[in-house]
Write a protein that binds this DNA or RNA. Structure first.
Lengths: 252, 252
DNA sequence: CAGTGGTCTAGACCACATC
DNA sequence: ATGTGGTCTAGACCACTGG
């Protein structure tokens, strides 16, 4: 059986002096990225993976624990370990959406797509998305209504190359969240995000769409979303009316 | 050796059918809360705790892993496991402070305490802090300067009973963060917090203190801070100028 | 019932820190 | 050299799921 500094594991990205369980984790991450198992499917059992990699079950367990902590897989006792998916996260529509009503329970908002445009990115966006010069992007605008009141105006920018065939009609026909749409229709999985928040004054277009006064204070939430390998795949600006809602953050 | 449903462990808060390692974790949490070991001190070694609770080292390890994940202790290979403390978190002044400059590295801000007042809480604050009727609070106001520019105006409210003898002079004499001050001078440890963010317009007092125009958009960050047992001990409102700074949040 | 993940144990060795 | 936490193993039993 391989020990900590073994070489029974082929071509690790993780340095060869990393603990075995992290090497196994890296291998599993690669299999996930390569879609060896589809979102929602079960990955092989711990015993089977232990045989495959010629390590003990305990070592595989630590690797899978780390994947579960990163939200890449979901463990279900008695059933197996499943590839995480945006399409069945009914309860956690709010994993990436931090806007909540000031009073009352958080109900899923209604999503209204306004338009889809193809164009050239701004310099900022091109840099954030690490685009090649001249590479085109798609820009989607949409509004989120909480209890029939418009609260958020999102402008979402993604590389056009990754989302060939994305049209307003196709999105409107899809039932589910934006990230579920991206995942199941285009094979792009959003894993992590970084948000930077500013307070801004509403311009005329935004004020019109959100039903506020021009100049009213809004939250501007700038999100950069990452997929496997920390590759950036989405830039998004959300403008939020925070009269009856707020942005929630838990600090550990 | 005790098994999962044993009773070798006295009076667990955690249900007796909880896994052993969680029962051990609960016991360790109680010892931490009771200050059996001081902040910054080492707790007993895994082997010694295993003997004390009559379980295996592996079970103690899982309990301590869970405490470390909650930021209650810090593990240091070769040295021991230490009670987490705010007084030595040089690198992580930013654990609870999410304001960052738009450009350049994040340097620790300068703290200016404006005043300390004793008084009656508003109804909202009394509810959030779960105060007894008529219980007094202390309210501190301070400004954070980033690179000599005022950026944040904080209004901090705590139960007076927990902070007897807190004066402006005493804080000014202390070198270190606010939470280090609370911890080492009053024995109150801030463990978790929940922040709700709104966009607001600057009033005249705030505009004066932060050097902005009246009506300028500001971030209002309302924080409720918890100590052991999720007991609330601080309510704080931070008003932030986000022209050259932003609030940063990482989504997993 | 068989198969899965979840817990617990006992013992080995490694890496790091200190004396 | 000794003691600490970190990794790895092998095997046992428990709890949950589904045929």
């Amino acid at each position: 059986m391989p020990r900590s500094h073994n070489s029974a594991v082929p071509t690790p990205t993780t340095p060869s002096f990393a603990p075995l369980y992290l090497q196994i984790k890296t291998l599993l991450e690669r299999s996930l990225e390569a879609r060896e198992w589809q979102p929602g499917e079960a990955i092989p059992s711990e015993m089977e993976l232990a045989r495959r990699y010629a390590v003990s079950q305990g070592t595989v367990r630590k690797a899978i624990d780390a994947l579960a902590a990163d939200n890449l897989v979901v463990r279900r006792q008695g059933k197996g370990t499943f590839v995480a998916t945006h399409t069945e996260e009914r309860t956690s529509v709010f994993r990436f959406l931090r806007i909540r009503p000031n009073e009352g329970a958080a109900l899923a908002p209604r999503r209204r797509l306004l338009d889809v445009r193809r164009g050239k990115p701004t310099a900022d966006v091109a840099r954030l998305l690490a685009l090649k010069p001249g590479e085109a992007v798609l820009t989607l605008r949409r509004v989120l209504d909480f209890a029939a009141t418009p609260v958020v105006l999102d402008e979402i920018t993604v590389p056009a190359a990754l989302f060939r065939g994305l049209t307003k009609a196709r999105y409107d026909a899809y039932r589910g969240s934006m990230y579920a749409f991206f995942e199941s229709e285009f094979g792009v999985r959003m894993l992590k995000a970084r948000e930077k928040i500013h307070a801004v004054a509403a311009d005329t277009v935004t004020a019109e769409l959100l039903g506020t006064a021009v100049g009213a204070p809004l939250l501007a939430v700038d999100r950069l979303t990452l997929t496997y390998g920390d590759r950036p795949v989405e830039v998004r600006r959300g403008l939020c009316v925070t009269r009856d809602h707020h942005y929630l953050n838990e600090l550990g």
